[in-house]
Design a protein around this nucleic acid. Structure first.
Lengths: 115, 115
DNA sequence: GTTAGCAGTAACCTATGGGTTAGTAAACCT
DNA sequence: AGGTTTACTAACCCATAGGTTACTGCTAAC
């Protein structure tokens, strides 16, 4: 039976993909994760590294990432606050890889006017 | 050298991922592709199958998908217009799969309060 | 004592994605 | 001949993501 209406199949598959997309698809989420992969950072340090993000937005993004367990807010003894990329963020590796790969291939195809 | 600032690494990786995301991240793109996987469809047929999408939005989404080579607009001899999922859309398989997989795992983790 | 950095929050603005309703010209059905 | 379906487009509305500017209370440096 090849009757794959959206109501049947989409309802199983799409919400899961959308959850994933919601978490990484923001303008800054990936950049933050990549930047934090280079080492823990403080708020302002992060803001400078990302160049272009506002404090408000950075604050929101970090809260989202924290809620989803990808990043932690660590308070040192001297009171310094560090944002740390969690090991769990590595679980996004293959998703990211696929996205980047497909994006590159696709852009190439378009450049070559294969589309 | 572990100095992965965003300006260095993000500038290579992020745009590629964003291109990919832009193409599949809309509310309807995936649903349309999945629906068309069940066979070619006419405009109104597609609209009914997706239940909830407006003609305006469907029209826009189809244009996007066509521009990116994922879908074609085929005109039959009798004038009927069919929307056809291209073979190229299969190249999204692994991206989709990873997204769905990660989304499901993540939701599970949250349900189990592992986060 | 004041200036600069830290870690944000508050109030506001705008551009965009998507939705709603209506309307079109042509073909098709009865 | 009148109604329905097809394949759209036009004009409008709204919610949200993200941006801008300003402000806070706190600490450290000069």
């Amino acid at each position: 039976m090849e009757t794959a209406t959206c109501t049947e199949k989409c309802s199983q598959v799409v919400p899961a993909a959308e959850d994933a997309l919601y978490i990484i698809a923001g303008k800054w989420k990936m950049r933050i994760l990549i930047t934090l992969a280079g080492g823990d950072k403080r708020f302002n340090e992060l803001q400078r590294a990302l160049s272009g993000i506002s404090a408000r937005v950075l604050s929101n993004e970090l809260k989202d990432l924290e809620l989803n367990g990808l990043v932690s807010r660590k308070i040192l003894d001297n009171g310094t606050i560090l944002y740390v990329r969690n090991a769990y963020a590595d679980s996004l590796r293959s998703v990211m890889h696929e996205l980047v790969q497909w994006g590159m291939d696709h852009k190439q195809k378009i450049r070559n006017r294969e589309i």
